[in-house]
């Protein structure tokens, strides 16, 4: 992109409107004239100002940090979760990625596990249910020993961090043809399972989280769309890690319970 030169472009927006979870939805078409310096969500802000002015209810869409870290934003842009730019959440996308005359189709994340709330807002709370079922290390406040008592090899710490970078946006689920949540779940299982602190509950955690995941989401058939859409580029290797641990967990949990 040319340095420092913003231009104004005209785009045709086809946005999904849906009044509620049980209503039928459809596309609405709006023309927008916008500076290429604006972010994609600022363009939607501008649309909402215009809608409000003419007496039409603004479009519901979610965002908070607008820095790519909270995971609140997320829509399908021209069929891609979070839009065309790799490793970029919807809120970090700028209009300089588009051209004058483009048509831009904006839809909610679509997945059986994520019912539409209104317009572009969806319910991603099943992801919290997965964490609730085991995505933690059980240590009560005050029960921790000195932080440097257990050294963690730097390589393990770094790899755990790569997994822990997940922002819980759900783009992986939206991108998956089966609406599977393997990438999200494996990111947490990988994060905790790679650290010494996470070993005591490694097997029970894996079993519980995987089974809760299966209650809400589809199954993985190795398409890899999830990782391609992920704004934090979480690696498919974590899915392999989770699958291995799940098989082992089935055996080990029985063994740990004394049932050889």
């Amino acid at each position: 992109m040319s340095s420092g030169h913003s231009e104004t472009i005209n785009v045709t927006l086809k946005v999904w409107r849906q009044e509620g979870p049980n209503e039928n939805g459809g596309f609405e078409v709006h023309q927008q004239t916008i500076s290429t310096d604006a972010s994609f969500l600022e363009m939607l802000d501008q649309l909402n100002e215009q809608l409000n002015e003419v007496g039409t209810e603004p479009l519901a869409f979610e965002s908070d940090c607008r820095e790519g870290i909270c995971g609140t934003c997320g829509v399908m842009i021209n069929g891609r979760a979070h839009g065309p730019q790799t490793a970029t959440a919807t809120c970090q996308l700028h209009m300089r990625e588009f051209h004058d005359g483009d048509e831009i189709v904006v839809e909610p994340f679509r997945a059986a596990g994520f019912p539409v709330i209104r317009d572009l807002a969806v319910d991603r709370s099943p992801l919290d249910r997965i964490i609730e079922s085991g995505g933690y290390i059980s240590v009560n406040t005050g029960a921790a020993s000195d932080a440097n008592l257990t050294p963690v090899p730097k390589a393990a710490a770094d790899m755990a961090f790569d997994a822990a970078a997940c922002i819980g946006c759900g783009a992986c689920v939206a991108a998956c043809p089966n609406s599977a949540a393997q990438l999200f779940t494996s990111a947490k299982i990988g994060h905790l399972g790679l650290l010494p602190q996470g070993q005591a509950e490694r097997w029970s955690r894996t079993e519980n989280m995987v089974e809760t995941m299966e209650e809400f989401f589809g199954s993985c058939t190795n398409h890899g769309e999830c990782s391609a859409a992920c704004p934090k580029e979480i690696s498919l290797d974590f899915i392999a890690f989770m699958n291995r641990d799940y098989v082992k967990a089935k055996i080990k949990n029985r063994a740990l319970a004394g049932q050889h």
Binding site: V139, A144, V152, A160, F161, H191, Q197
Partner: peptide
């Protein structure tokens, strides 16, 4: 201490501390 025990991946040196 608490955060480390919870699995917060703070930066570490090559000795793992």
């Amino acid at each position: 201490d608490q955060a480390t025990a919870q699995g917060v991946p703070f930066a570490r040196d090559y000795g793992g501390l």
